[in-house]
Design a protein around this nucleic acid. Sequence first.
DNA 1: CCATTATATGGCAGAAAGGTCAAATAGCCA
DNA 2: TGGCTATTTGACCTTTCTGCCATATAATGG
Lengths: 111, 111
Amino acid sequence: MNERHEAYKIRAQIIKAMAHPSRLMIIDELSRGERCVCDLQRVVGADMSTVSKHLAVMRNAGIVEDRKAGLQVFYRLRVPCILQFFGCVEAVLESRIGAQRADLVGRRILQ
Amino acid sequence: MNERHEAYKIRAQIIKAMAHPSRLMIIDELSRGERCVCDLQRVVGADMSTVSKHLAVMRNAGIVEDRKAGLQVFYRLRVPCILQFFGCVEAVLESRIGAQRADLVGRRILQ
DNA sequence: CCATTATATGGCAGAAAGGTCAAATAGCCA
DNA sequence: TGGCTATTTGACCTTTCTGCCATATAATGG
């Protein structure tokens, strides 16, 4: 595996750390401020250990960082631009709707 | 599984379609214009069938679209904003370097 | 029609990711 | 110290993803 491939692999790791419904929920929630694991558990609605592992994946990727405060651990987004992803994903979804429409028109089902 | 979860799942599918080194290579290459599968195969350096499957994943997600021309099939990006992802990923990487530095300083190894 | 070329698909084996349970760790307070 | 709470980690199992091979499909030219 060459150096160029390695560079893409590192970048893929970061994107992969977001590519999961629960992790997107977490990112969305963290976009509104720092949250403890217990808060995030309630939002995601999964086992605490599962949420903790999702957070570890995101921490390793450099997407979030944590801060201990007594018994609790608070997480926050490390790089705000991650939220741009949501906007672009919406654009993809809209484009998909457009393409479906065009397809139906092409097949003389619509319009 | 509720409706809210379903919405995040759909969005995760789109991000997942980018979360692979070869697929990032492909997106990067397509950012410079339409390419046939054979071009992309050369760039990625994998089996043609593997590349074809990667393209199918991205097509299903709505990231790329294709156009047949004789024996060849040309792919192009469907939503240009995907390229913003690269910028943000770089920001995460830089932030990671910053954090490593801070960590070393904190442990009195640096500075 | 046949051979050739470009791409896609099906099947399968190995790798990686995800979830759950139980156990470990760490901070707090009595 | 001992018990309680919040979080992390490890072991294990199941599911999903990847990559490769062989095979199919589709367009082209002779």
